[in-house]
Simulated scan of single mutants.
Amino acid sequence: MPAKGEGVRVGLSRGELARRTGVNLETIRYFERIGMLPAPPRTQGGHRVYGEGHVRALGFIRRARDLGFAPEEVRAILALGGPGKASCGEVREIAVQHLEQVRAKMADLSRLERLLAATIEHCSGGEAPDCAVIDMLEGGGFG
């Protein structure tokens, strides 16, 4: 029981939110600054007080970012109502577009892997100044 005049603190500080979600303080600040995480209410003393909604939203944002969703995509899902409220069809469209981007990146990486492997194969690795890797980087070969 708090002493007379102390008041009861409800909610989490930013540090407690960071510990509970595994998201560092600067990332929480960033998500607030870009409008992805709603600004928390403040105490009379000006301290931020985060609630369970912030914990859930931050966990959702972190997982979406871990899966490579861009901030705009995460913001779009949250604008649809977020977890438990957004239309599955609308969220699916965002996910389909994201999957297409992931597949395009994978195709680009596969082409890059083949180019590097072929270039390295043509590299003698010797002491001579002519080098297939340098030629490729200068734009003169194997592109």
Results as ranks from 00 to 15, higher is better:
G35A: 08
L109S: 03
G141R: 15
E52D: 14
S13D: 07
P129N: 11
M136N: 07
G89C: 05
A86W: 06
P41K: 13
G35C: 06
R42D: 08
H54N: 04
E121D: 14
V74G: 03
D135V: 07
R42E: 02
K105P: 00
R19N: 04
G15L: 01
E93P: 03
A117L: 12
A57W: 04
A64K: 00
P40K: 13
S110Q: 15
I34S: 11
E100D: 12
V133L: 13
R111N: 10
R103G: 01
R103C: 01
G15P: 00
M106A: 15
A95I: 12
R48I: 04
I77M: 14
F69T: 10
E73S: 14
L12R: 04
L17S: 01
V55D: 01
E113C: 05
N24F: 00
L137R: 09
E26T: 06
R111S: 06
G84I: 03
D66Q: 12
G68F: 07
E52H: 04
R63S: 10
V91E: 03
R14G: 13
R62G: 02
I61N: 05
H47Y: 15
R92K: 10
H122G: 13
G81L: 07
A118P: 03
G35P: 07
A132S: 14
V102F: 03
R65I: 02
H47L: 12
L109P: 04
V8W: 04
I94G: 00
M106Q: 05
E138Y: 01
L99Y: 12
L78A: 13
A70M: 13
E52K: 09
A64H: 02
A39Q: 15
G68E: 12
L99A: 10
N24R: 05
D135Y: 01
R92M: 04
G82Q: 05
G139T: 07
R114W: 11
E113V: 05
E72M: 08
G89H: 03
C88Y: 06
E72A: 15
E100R: 15
L17Q: 00
G11C: 08
L67C: 13
R92N: 11
Q101H: 09
A70N: 00
F142I: 09
E32Y: 01
K105G: 07
G125P: 05
G82A: 10
K85P: 00
